[in-house]
């Protein structure tokens, strides 16, 4: 059962990474406009005259 000593921390660590990734996405405003994100996929990059996500307006 000594394998558990490694497996449990590994499982928690991986889960923790995805939790942190979600919190980061939340904080950086990627959940601010869910409907817009669904529609923007239809726009070609070179056509979209607005700003890209990484240049988003800081509120």
């Amino acid at each position: 059962m000594s394998i558990l000593v490694y497996l449990i921390p590994v499982a928690l660590f991986l889960g923790g990474i995805s939790l942190l990734a979600f919190l980061w996405a939340l904080r950086s405003g990627q959940y601010d406009d869910m409907d817009g994100a669904a529609q923007r996929i239809l726009l070609d990059d070179d056509e979209a005259g607005g700003t890209r996500a990484d240049e988003r307006v800081i509120l």
Binding site: E47, A48, G49, G50, T51
Partner: peptide, 13 residues
């Protein structure tokens, strides 16, 4: 819709 987003953003930019 997506077309609305594009026309508004391009015109303003």
């Amino acid at each position: 819709c997506a077309a609305c987003i594009r026309s508004v953003e391009t015109a303003l930019a």
